[in-house]
Each structure stands twice: as structure tokens, then as C-alpha cells.
């Protein structure tokens, strides 16, 4: 009886873990990016835009599939050309605790979609919206802002920094809050 209960419990718990990998690869709305809040201005120094209740931010952030897709796209769309592997180059470092435009999923999404004045190009219409969310989730994982159970693991090639799931949380400088 007790054994049966334990088995049932562990199976239920194991199934819950599948959430981490849930792969939805088709955008939910076919209404186009018009469903997204339009930015009022491109100038938002340091500010976080009032968070529009976008469920993508929450559902992509802790999802291992979307994070690793974001990692692949970061290379495919040549973000590394300007940000290196997160350490920064012509563009700012993305693996430190400094955020010019805020660390929330929404601000990073806005940065990638609309660009930023000091040289970050706009990828509006060039990257489908879901893929922008994947990139945003991955950018956050670069500074340890993603659950280590979901963040990408080691690279197949040489790694410039610890794998994303072992990155110390930059905001707390490695001390857990």
C-alpha cells in the first residue's frame, strides 16, 4: 500500500518534470506581431517597460527546449558577432550583472525586436516573435538568470565560460539570495 503510493507519487513527480522540456514550436496566435504591445519610444534608459502580461515570458523562461533553441539561434543570427559569447565585443557583455536596459524578459525582448540607439540593430520582422522570446530567455541564462535545471549544459566546442547551467547568478555575484 505504502509502496504503491510511493510509486504513484514518484511517477507523478517525474511527469511534472516533463514540463521542463515541453516543446511548443508553433506560435499560439496567427495574428502576427500586432498582438505585441507597441513600444512608445525607443529610448528607455535603465527603465523596465511596464510588464505587459505576456505568458510567453513565463513559459519560455524555465523551459529547457526554448533555452537551448535560443542558444542555437544566438549563433545562427550572429549575435556573437557583436556580443562574442556573452563576454561582449562591439556590443556590451551579456554575462555580467550590468543591464543598460533592464534584465526582464520583456525588456530584452524589446531590445532585440526594436533595437537600441547605441548600435543594437532592430530584428523586427527578421526574427519571428517566438524565436525572439527564445533568444531573450537564453540571454538571461548567460548571467545565471535561469533555473539550472533548464539552462543549457556544456557546449560541443570550446567554451569561453562555464556552461549556462553552472553560471553564478550575476545579480547576486554567485551568492544565492
Amino acid at each position: 500500500m505504502r509502496l504503491g503510493f510511493a510509486t504513484l507519487l514518484s511517477v507523478t513527480l517525474a511527469l511534472a518534470a516533463c514540463q521542463r522540456e515541453e516543446r511548443d514550436t508553433r506560435p499560439q496566435s496567427s495574428l502576427g506581431s500586432g498582438g505585441q504591445p507597441t513600444p512608445v519610444t525607443t529610448l528607455e534608459p535603465g527603465g523596465q517597460r511596464p510588464s505587459p502580461s505576456n505568458n510567453k515570458a513565463a513559459s519560455f523562461e524555465a523551459n529547457a527546449f526554448h533555452l537551448s533553441e535560443g542558444k542555437r539561434l544566438f549563433g545562427w543570427f550572429n549575435c556573437s558577432g557583436c556580443h562574442a559569447n556573452g563576454g561582449g565585443g562591439m556590443g556590451p557583455a551579456l554575462m555580467d550583472q550590468k543591464w543598460i536596459y533592464g534584465s526582464s524578459m520583456e525588456s530584452i525582448h524589446a531590445t532585440i525586436r526594436d533595437g537600441r540607439p547605441n548600435g543594437m540593430p532592430s530584428f523586427r520582422n527578421k526574427i519571428p516573435d517566438d524565436q525572439i522570446w527564445e533568444l531573450a530567455a537564453f540571454v538571461r541564462s548567460l548571467s545565471g538568470n535561469a533555473p539550472s535545471s533548464a539552462a543549457p549544459q556544456r557546449n560541443d566546442d570550446m567554451m569561453p565560460h562555464p556552461s549556462e547551467n553552472r553560471m553564478p547568478d550575476a545579480a547576486t555575484l554567485g551568492k544565492s539570495p
Binding site: 514550436t25 508553433r26 496567427s30 506581431s33 542555437r72 519571428p128 516573435d129 517566438d130 524565436q131
Partner: peptide
Amino acid sequence: DPQGIKPGSHMPVVE
């Protein structure tokens, strides 16, 4: 709908 034909493929749905 590449994701309907070949789910998981690296070509995303472009609206």
C-alpha cells in the same frame, strides 16, 4: 507550417 510537417525542425513558423 514547417512545424506541422516536420515538428521540431529548425525552420520556424514565419507568420
